[in-house]
């Protein structure tokens, strides 16, 4: 096995310089960065990059960020939620402006990936900024004109915190087999047509596909959100190997 592997030199993940072309305010705390990256090797929906920032005195900080754009898009998009005392996020979703540069490398991660060729049904469960890699999958599904049945269950704190709100509604309106279910955990605005509680087992059962339909399931968000939803999905009867998870942190303790 070692021999066969060393025949093809491993593809080294090089640090590349990204230039910010555009900054999009998605919500009061969340910002998308549209990037130019000469030499970007391409990616699959669901993968992430490692970002490295360097200060004037040479100090560096690295974090992972999911890719929001589909493989078909000409430019890479990241979407970053600004955390109050976040070392990297408060810079990327704060001071950073169009024309600025930073380093990144990738794509990283080969298992939290969906390609149209894999087909459906596809059940996406996202909490907060955990929508980011799921959005890449939905954008890829649309770009590839896939009609694989797909459902997104998306939990946000308040209506104002819903990331990609307009684009999600537009995708859901196409009638191509994509169904969108919102739930809000801290808000129930007048006229709200979605759900208004934390994701629970009943919600996963009612909105998702039956285990017999063997949906591919992707769960992404803060660690406690992912822990709970993934365990409930398994309890409902979905096979563990069909439940893929990406935990953004922190531990919640």
């Amino acid at each position: 096995m070692r021999e066969t592997k060393s025949l093809s030199a491993p593809r080294r993940l090089q640090w590349m310089t990204a230039t910010v072309r555009n900054v999009i305010d998605e919500t009061p705390r969340v910002r998308s960065l549209v990037l130019d990256i000469p030499g970007w090797p391409g990616h699959r929906a669901g993968q992430h990059v490692d970002v490295r920032l360097t200060s004037e005195d040479g100090y560096q900080a690295q974090r992972s960020y999911s890719i929001a754009s589909p493989p078909e898009a000409p430019k890479l998009m990241l979407t970053v939620e600004r955390l109050a005392d976040g070392e990297v996020s408060s810079y990327l979703a704060g001071d950073l402006r169009a024309g600025d540069t930073f380093e990144l490398r990738g794509p990283v991660g080969g298992y939290f990936v969906w390609t149209a060729a894999l087909g459906g049904p596809l059940f996406l469960v996202g909490g907060g900024s955990g929508i980011v890699p799921l959005m890449a999958m939905l954008r890829h599904r649309a770009a590839a004109a896939s009609e694989a049945p797909a459902t997104l269950l998306y939990s946000s704190r308040t209506q104002a915190d819903i990331i990609y709100h307009a684009e999600l509604e537009q995708l859901a309106g196409k009638g191509d087999g994509f169904r969108l279910v919102h739930t809000l955990t801290r808000d129930r605005p007048p006229g709200w047509g979605g759900l208004a509680r934390r994701v629970d087992r009943a919600m996963l059962e009612e909105t998702g596909f039956a285990p017999a339909e063997t949906p591919r399931i992707f769960v992404c968000g803060p660690t406690p959100f992912v822990e709970t939803a993934a365990t409930q999905l398994r309890d409902i009867g979905h096979a563990a190997h069909l439940i893929k998870t990406e935990r953004f942190g922190p531990s919640g303790r």
């Binding site: 640090w15 310089t17 490295r52 920032l53 360097t54 200060s55 004037e56 040479g58 100090y59 560096q60 900080a61 070392e87 810079y91 001071d95 950073l96 600025d100 540069t101 930073f102 380093e103």
Partner: peptide
């Protein structure tokens, strides 16, 4: 040392 400076990034770690 080749890494480009991220303008305005101070870090705290």
């Amino acid at each position: 040392s080749q890494s480009p400076i991220s303008r305005g990034f101070r870090g705290r770690g």
